[in-house]
Amino acid sequence: MEAIIDRIMHTYDLLANRTAAASGEARRKVSAYIQTLSEAGERDPHRLTVCGLTYLRQLDGRVDPVKAGYTGL
């Protein structure tokens, strides 16, 4: 699970310019989210990565998923 979180954070850090504190908070939130998905039965590491990145984008609020054309996963 830690490798998935590391992949998510590495990728997202390339896309977003955040402070270390904001990055730490994002890591905690996405870790809890990925844990929830995993406990619900999702095991595909690629899907978990995409879900984690999508979750972080939604938390940032910079992109409205509906306006961007996202209707769900």
Score class of each variant (00 low, 15 high):
Y33F: 15
A16Q: 09
L14V: 03
T19Q: 06
T19A: 08
A21L: 12
A3G: 07
K29Q: 15
I8T: 01
A32C: 04
T36V: 07
E39M: 07
L37A: 04
R7L: 00
A3F: 04
I5W: 05
D44S: 10
A21V: 13
A20N: 11
R43F: 09
A20V: 13
I8G: 00
D44Y: 06
E25S: 11
R18P: 00
H10N: 13
M9N: 05
K29P: 03
I34M: 04
I8W: 01
M1N: 01
G24L: 08
T36Q: 14
G24N: 15
A3C: 04
A16V: 12
R18N: 12
M1T: 00
E42F: 09
T19F: 02
A22G: 11
E39G: 05
T19L: 03
I34S: 00
A32S: 14
I8S: 00
D13M: 08
A3H: 09
E25D: 14
T36N: 11
G41V: 06
T11I: 03
A21H: 11
A21G: 07
G41F: 04
E2M: 08
H10P: 00
S31I: 05
A32E: 15
R43T: 15
D13P: 02
A3K: 07
I4K: 00
R28M: 09
T19S: 15
G41M: 07
Y12W: 13
M9A: 03
T19P: 04
A32V: 05
D13C: 04
I5A: 01
R28L: 12
I34P: 03
R28H: 12
A3E: 09
G41D: 06
G24Y: 04
A20R: 14
Y12V: 04
M9D: 04
D13L: 03
Y12I: 06
L37R: 08
R27I: 05
E2L: 09
D44T: 05
Q35P: 03
E2F: 05
A22I: 08
Q35I: 10
L14C: 09
S23D: 11
E2A: 10
A32H: 07
S23I: 12
S31P: 01
D6W: 01
A22H: 12
I5D: 04
T11G: 06
D13G: 10
T11S: 06
I8H: 01
R7G: 02
T19N: 08
E25R: 11
K29C: 06
G24S: 12
Q35L: 13
L37S: 01
R7I: 02
Q35A: 15
M1I: 01
H10R: 12
T11F: 02
A26L: 09
R18S: 11
Y12S: 06
V30T: 10
M9F: 02
